[in-house]
Design a protein around this nucleic acid. Sequence first.
DNA 1: TCGGCGCCTGCAACTATGTTGCATAAGGGG
DNA 2: CCCCTTATGCAACATAGTTGCAGGCGCCGA
Lengths: 144, 144
Amino acid sequence: MCSRCNYREILERAGLEATPGRLRVLEVVGGHPAPLSAADIHRTVNRTGRLDRVTVYRILDRLVREKILQELSLGGRRRLYGMAPSEHHPPHPHFRCARCGAVQCLPPGGVRVDLGGVRRVFAGEIREVEVRLEGLCANCLSRA
Amino acid sequence: MCSRCNYREILERAGLEATPGRLRVLEVVGGHPAPLSAADIHRTVNRTGRLDRVTVYRILDRLVREKILQELSLGGRRRLYGMAPSEHHPPHPHFRCARCGAVQCLPPGGVRVDLGGVRRVFAGEIREVEVRLEGLCANCLSRA
DNA sequence: TCGGCGCCTGCAACTATGTTGCATAAGGGG
DNA sequence: CCCCTTATGCAACATAGTTGCAGGCGCCGA
């Protein structure tokens, strides 16, 4: 659990009831150092009580819609979920190991992206930028 | 089809037989201005002949392994495929419209990424950088 | 207090996407 | 001519996510 986040308050500020299911999902996601899949979250939450698979999906959808969580697409088939950028959770890039598939959050601020050229030629409106790195993680490097 | 690419030659340089299926898949992907899903490719290829769904998946896997195609993860459930970066196909960022889901390739060079900070603290080996933008496409903006 | 309404959850069935195992066909080398 | 490899097809399966519907619970107004 992120020590600086009050999940109940976050939910209520978004106009959502702070149900046990939602609180447990938030605790699992906020307390994990890397983004998790719906299946991971379902498994973890069900170690301490039960919450249906479908309910987990619905909670995740809702929390993403309210921008409490963010959904990441990092290769592989599964969508991953992490805390959305906010005061306590600055945006940061993600790394995925091409060998073992593990995903890590990288420190915020380590990557600078300059969109100048794109903003000049692109007719749409850019709202979010996601940076994804791929390569070999330290673990796989040492075992190579 | 990309006028500067000789698909037969690309396949043979990678040590792959230039079979009709592979050539057709390459023509479809190389000739489309945005990345395509396996289902899109299967559908398109089957307008001019037939190629099994499974064969399309296997061809895509193979071409990705040989770095002829690249696989993109752009949200949504499907993996998308485009030409891998090469002499004729410089790496470029991708944009996905949050409203209609359409994916576009953005001009290469429009985005500059500085990894300095990450390379100093990250213990693994970074091989690829993917930049994904999200927002509203011109079409959805005008209809909003 | 009652009845209705909305929200959350569970369950079953379903869809979409991707994968595996096994059979067949084509081509090359002994 | 036989065997091996490679590409393809087909059926079955696996995984991830979605939909429809019903039950429970709290809240609000009558």
